[in-house]
Design a protein around this nucleic acid. Structure first.
Lengths: 212, 212, 212, 212
DNA sequence: AATGAATGAGGGTTCATTCAT
DNA sequence: CATGAATGAACCCTCATTCAT
């Protein structure tokens, strides 16, 4: 139970309440699944009243959509900081950072991943979910393709297809997340991270070492 | 809508009806998502009456479980035929066959994959789903690890970890399926297949060629 | 489970099948209550197929009605044999026999009483049930009133109202049955019988002794 | 149909709504029988919407149980006021009051008795019903036995068994209620009351007169 | 005469949404 | 803004009844 709400129930800026509800939704989806997430559960988790969700979001659908968007936006922001930011200059450093980022605590947070795969599981029959998930992956794919292209260029490798490598990396990370999320005993997070590193180390040996 | 059933009520062996209902369930999950799949929709899809599903399965839950089991069993059987059958003798042939199998029309059937990922998306909050999905992956992992170990042994490679390679392959295939399923325009099935091949060709160059 | 039915399911005279189904219905009502008695349960108890009940009785309602009638008829027949038969000549003997009959094993059979009170509980809202139950009690009341009147006449008692005594006796027996049926630990059958005897012994001291 | 409720939805304290629903349930059971009582009927009778019953009671079962409890509690309270209260001091007065109470308008209310016998009719197959009904009768039996014992002591009667007399009285009243409820033409309420009085007047002649 | 798979109306229950307070 | 009792459509499930065999 996470009752951040003050007892007095004083009016709060719209954005604060929305964020509070989105966080509660994330927890609910992780705990009860997407289909098991009800408005009552979400608002109780937020320590607020039943009607509040429909006040700030128009409907359950909108709340879910904004929750998904929130999760993908956060990931996208973190990824963009690495791929486009000034902190990392060399190609190697960026790739290394990407790898670390994709298996950092903030990213492999069970709650957020549960949201991601919860929506992905329904995406095929829900064009709106599909659009949000796809946009996220499209964005990532472009940037990662460019990054890997740089690495291949630096290595003088003219054979390997950067786009294929990028698509493979994204899919691999998705698959590792999913497998570790569903059964962490079979695929511990550590092993997931090593598998991802192994993938890049094999494909881009000059930039990434198997290490760790 | 697949109304093979005649208007006149005709008794059928239990197994025939169950199979008919499972097939209808698969289609429904693909079309409406797991949460959008109702008994009414399933039985209408099967061209039968509402009550029939509870007659042959005890509850919706049981119907869904048997549907998931049916999909995983079919995959497991096909995979076992390759990994344990006598048709393929050499390690290379087996790996090649596995790759082809994983991207064969029967496996990358959108309906079946929608079922698989629909359940996976809810697996974390549903122990029963989790168990079925995990058992499937555990089984596959053991066999594939053994296969890859043979390949590495044959190649004299004592560095690469077969278990890591197998976990990576399974995750990669999962990720590719998921990405192609959700947005086939971004990741066409052909590209998925190539990405998987590329993964194995890089890791086991003596056994698999980039090809195609 | 009472499978009197022969394995070969040979056709049986209509009356045999009907009786078989009525007996199964009695057991079902005793076991599951009137509202918990389903056609499937009844036919399974009889060791027959689901459709058979609607073949021999027109509907569930008819089956239930005939079951109630069967129970009341059996009681009425036994009672009539005492009150109208030639076996007992003296008033005393008849009253004594009535008392013994009302608490004899055949009458205080839990199954039959469960049927009786199951229907009585619904009688107010079901005119058909009400009619059958009332006819039974009316019949009994007339005969018992006459019997008690003879006793009072023989005793020279001109004060006590035979009709009131009879109505009281019938109600008392109903009440004792009901209380012993619902909670035999609180009111054991033996005690019930003694209470009924006590009632008659007090009202008709010349004919019935407290005894036992 | 009792639509005290206004058309405009107006929130009410939980207890008010529960009581409203219990009263509606009592009417429904009286009108349609226990098995004919549906949630839709009850809520319509209360002039409320279908979902309300499951909002205040968790299930139909709970609603029924609380309804039965309400009816037995009301009876128990009235009876306790006589048997334990200070209003009546002499044994005679208490017995007289008990008799009048048991056939007072509030007690022989057709709706409440229909509930009582509706549940009793199913009690044998429903342990929960059985428990509530039995507790009620056990309580009454103890108190009435004590009261009758006092009367017998006062009369110097050392022969009659007070417990038997009490059990008989309870059963007789039950039986009279049931017979009058099911067929008031055959056994008018007035006659029922006289029969009960006759029972006590015969057994406890020093305390109760045949009267009326 | 007998079977039991199939039907579908009707039941209890859930839950997104509304709105008087 | 915030509340939560109230609503009612839609869900899953049961079961009396039907009918091809």
């Amino acid at each position: 139970m996470t009752k951040t709400a003050n007892k007095t129930r004083r009016a709060q800026p719209k954005e604060v309440r929305k964020e509070q509800l989105i966080q509660a939704t994330i927890k609910c989806i992780a705990k009860h699944g997407l289909s098991g997430t009800t408005m009552a559960l979400v608002t109780r988790e937020a320590g607020l009243s039943m009607g509040i969700a429909n006040l700030h979001f128009e409907s359950k659908e909108k709340l879910l959509l904004e929750t998904l968007q929130s999760v993908t936006d956060e990931y996208a922001a973190g990824q963009a900081a690495i791929l486009e930011g000034e902190k990392f200059q060399s190609t190697s450093a960026r790739i290394e950072a990407l790898l670390n980022f994709d298996f950092s605590a903030r990213v492999i947070d069970k709650n957020k991943l549960a949201v991601w795969f919860g929506f992905l599981g329904e995406a095929r029959s829900r064009p709106t979910y599909q659009r949000i998930c796809s946009r996220q992956d499209s964005l990532a794919e472009e940037k990662i393709t460019a990054l890997f292209q740089s690495a291949l260029d630096e290595a003088g490798d003219k054979v390997v297809d950067a786009a294929l490598l990028a698509a493979g990396y994204i899919a691999l990370v998705d698959g590792l997340w999913l497998n570790s999320l569903v059964d962490p005993r079979r695929l511990p997070w550590k092993k997931s991270a090593r598998a991802a590193r192994h993938y890049l180390a094999t494909a881009l040996p000059k930039h990434i070492k198997p290490g760790k």
